[in-house]
């Protein structure tokens, strides 16, 4: 009894210690959130950085991260990287833009007209299952070794994901919603604009992200096979010349390009499809 009263009399008794105070707890929560998401990535980078100096890997084949970052910096500031990025972006962008502006309208149309979808589906499946890279020599024969065949092979591979996703999106629109719209006076165009299109939008975005990934994939392949500029060419060229840090720098650049394309599309999707959960 006396002990308790003595304790209560002590100054600071019952006060929350500083490590349990609100700002500290909040900061800790943020750090925890960051670590749970990025700890493995950081560990990977650290491992990459230190394993050559520990003798686990050969620095000539797997150069440490700082060498790669320096090579990347030099490539962009002194070297030809900025030009290569522009050229690659132009190729992929043209192809992606063409695929999207053909694929989405065509998909919206095909998804709504059962007969056309039915009759076009087998040939679409055949084209889709034929690797675009296998067709690249054909495109070169037809279109020459210049820019056109490169852009076209990327376009070809990029078209199918967005086209098929759009068709799928339109086909899975709930017919009950369309019926509701009709009962409540919506004409054909209104049904399309206010029911079919928004309902198909999340699927269309799935297609867009798939297509963006595909366009970068094909870009690199096309640039490795027959080009004298572009990031894909730089990867190949650096390897031929045994400029390994430069090669990794180009690869890193590609990864960053893919990440930013995905980020842009994700942000756009989150804005346009607020009502549906954005899923990865």
């Amino acid at each position: 009894m006396t002990l308790e009263t003595e304790q209560q009399a002590l100054p600071g008794f019952g006060q929350i210690p500083f490590w349990q105070s609100r700002p500290v707890r909040e900061a800790a929560a943020i750090v925890r959130g960051f670590l749970s998401r990025y700890a493995l990535l950081i560990a990977f980078a650290v491992l990459w950085q230190i394993s050559p100096s520990l003798g686990w890997t050969n620095a000539a084949v797997l150069p440490p991260l700082n060498t790669i970052l320096v090579a990347l910096w030099n490539g962009v500031t002194v070297g030809t990287f900025s030009g290569d990025i522009l050229i690659s972006l132009r190729r992929a962008g043209l192809a992606f833009g063409a695929a999207v502006s053909l694929g989405i309208p065509l998909g919206l149309f095909m998804g709504q007209v059962r007969f056309i979808e039915r009759s076009l589906d087998p040939i679409l499946q055949l084209f889709r299952q034929t690797s675009a890279l296998a067709l690249y020599p054909v495109f070169i024969l037809l279109l020459g070794l210049g820019e056109t065949s490169k852009v076209f092979v990327i376009f070809w591979a990029t078209l199918f994901p967005i086209l098929l996703a759009t068709i799928g999106g339109v086909k899975q629109v709930d017919p009950k919603l369309i019926e509701m719209a009709r009962v409540y006076g919506a004409k054909r165009l209104t049904v399309f604009r206010r029911v079919v299109l928004p309902a198909a939008l999340p699927q269309i975005f799935v297609g867009l992200r798939l297509s963006a990934t595909t366009s970068l994939l094909l870009l690199i392949a096309a640039e490795m096979i027959g080009a004298n500029s572009g990031i894909g060419f730089q990867v190949m060229n650096a390897q031929y010349n045994f400029q390994i840090p430069l090669m990794f720098a180009a690869i890193l650049l590609l990864a960053l390009l893919g990440l930013s394309a995905n980020f842009i599309l994700e942000t756009l999707q989150a804005r346009l499809c607020r009502w549906s959960k954005v899923k990865d």
């Binding site: 009950k176 919603l177 509701m180 029911v195 928004p198 309902a199 607020r274």
Partner: peptide, 10 residues
Amino acid sequence: IFQEPRLLPW
């Protein structure tokens, strides 16, 4: 008035 609400989710 349908059996399901049939609201446009967006």
